[in-house]
Design a protein around this nucleic acid. Sequence first.
DNA 1: GATGCCGGGTC
DNA 2: GACCCGGCATC
Length: 475
Amino acid sequence: MTSKRLLEQPRAGDSTEGREPVAGKASKTNTLQEGASRSFEISPNGHYFTSTREGHYIHKKFACGREEDEQSSGGVLKHSCPAHRLILNGTHVEAWSPVRGPGEPGCRLPSPETPHPHTSSIIPVPHDRRPSGLADKEVMAATVLTILSTSPLVLNPSSSASGADLAGKGWKESLSASYSSSTSGNWSWDASDQSVPSTPSPPLSNDPGKSFLLSSQSDDNIEETESTHFLFEDPIPRKRKNSMKVMFKCLWKNCEKVLSTSSGIQRHIRTIHLGRNGDSDYSDGEEDFYYSEIEVNMDTLSEGLSNLTPTSPTTSGPAPVFPVLTCDASRSEPARMIHTPLSQSAPSTLCHIRTDHAYQATSPVSIPSMPSDPPHSEDRISVSWQSPPVIYKGLPGPMTQIRTVSIGEKRQPVNHTTVSKTHTNTTSTSTSKPTTGTRKPRGEAKKCRKVYGMEKRDLWCTACRWKKACQRFTD
DNA sequence: GATGCCGGGTC
DNA sequence: GACCCGGCATC
């Protein structure tokens, strides 16, 4: 088990990488070291970064690792063992230990397989992320303050109390997750981490899927989320994750299997879904992709399950506790439904977007040729919401072409729609008027004016006569 | 400067 | 909607 963990760890950061380690099973120690070094490499700032973001990011990666054990043992905030710190961080150890006494449950956590000294050595990554000592906390606080100053969310410390805003709803969920009934803990962001990206496996749960999407689409989103968590945490008492238990849920389609150990779930996947010999220890790591870790707050969970009443839980957020489980479950569900294993949910979304963009880009082009054709313009209109063309503002072509249609009134509506939407995102400056920038280049074809000359103006097409785009000699 | 045509005004 | 034109961009 340990060896596996070790091996797996590297993967946490990168799914592709993850597999390599497997081969190296033979030498645990070496593997470990390698894994550790790798993790460092992968997450450049890992240990040394005080910045929340960095840490968080790293943490995420780590969390992604299939190895729940790792997390439990030292990984996530909850279960960090001082020992790990010592090995990895050296100086940090001391600072850390006060926070997390060796006696803490977190250290013990490790499942039967877990806590080997070796394992601890691997774990380092997570530790780094966390703010360990007071100094770290201070840094964190500073970071949080900074974030708060810029973020609107921060402005609403009430989140914990009121949190009435719909907009905040999304977060609340996450928050609720983080704010389990458990008492004070370490940094909430850790919790958020867990809730967010926990699983590395692509197809998996929503969380992972979302996170993946986010990551692929834009890191900012993730960061925002993280920052948000941070913010909240400040005002709110820190929750302790010790009570959290990591469960492994099989993500295989229509399979709800949940096991308490990664090895168990892997075995399950290997035997049941992959049709491999369960007994054989051999694993290429593929199983890792088919299950996700789920954190369960044992304290609240039991209560919550027994009575669905949110009131019971100890501290601040009884209700939130439930959400944790629910969220995970619900999230994972959709992801599974939509995506097959190994396929990331994100990609699909991305693809969709891209398609849209492409479509948008093309549609405008076609327009120019049929300026007089209202129907076409209409068609465009339907798509118009995609306005993105405006985004491409840099390109005069599209815009101009759209205008070309101008002869028909319809054209304007289309433009308008596009503009309005686009502007929302962009600046007000670009605005209502397409203005000059959008103007299309002059058509190559000769126009009535040139063909007939000023003398025969009566031969011109009406458009030319009206100083509109020539209808007779279109480009 | 000539040309093309957008945006807007008038009827 | 037809007609016209100021004004701007492009050539």
